[in-house]
């Protein structure tokens, strides 16, 4: 019984998704919000508050799913995500200005 639960939690922790940005692709986990992971990959994203109330880091979400552990104060338009607090839940494609 204990042997089945262990790999499951391990798998959950290492859940990795692809993020497509134009021709670039980076891998992200569900451990942290998208913004810090984009920054670590050297992708410059606008930010201000980094806690979901200023909407500076709003990015177009072309397809895929994200979720928010806390509902952000900023208005999140449909088809957009707030990078500072969004947790990526599937492979996604994002775009800055079109």
């Amino acid at each position: 019984m204990t042997s089945t639960s262990k790999p499951e939690s391990l798998e959950k922790k290492e859940q990795v998704h692809r993020v497509l940005i134009g021709k670039k692709q980076i891998l992200v986990t569900e451990e942290e919000p998208l913004l810090v992971q984009l920054e670590r990959a050297g992708i410059h994203v606008e930010y201000q508050c980094r806690e979901g109330y200023c909407s500076s880091c709003s990015i177009k979400l072309l397809w895929g799913n994200v979720c928010y552990p806390f509902e952000p104060l900023a208005w999140v338009q449909s088809g957009y995500l707030l990078a500072c607090c969004a947790i990526v839940k599937s492979d996604i494609e994002i775009a800055f200005f079109d």
Binding site: E46, Y47, Q48, R50, S56, F97
Partner: peptide, 30 residues
């Protein structure tokens, strides 16, 4: 452009990149 987009308007100007990216480090509230 950023603010127009935030209220559902199409962007108007050509400039798509922040010419003074250092401003974020000053604006960041944390």
């Amino acid at each position: 452009n950023v603010r127009m987009q935030a209220v559902g308007l199409d962007t108007y100007f050509e400039t798509k990149h922040n010419p003074i990216p250092w401003i974020n480090a000053w604006l960041v509230s944390d």
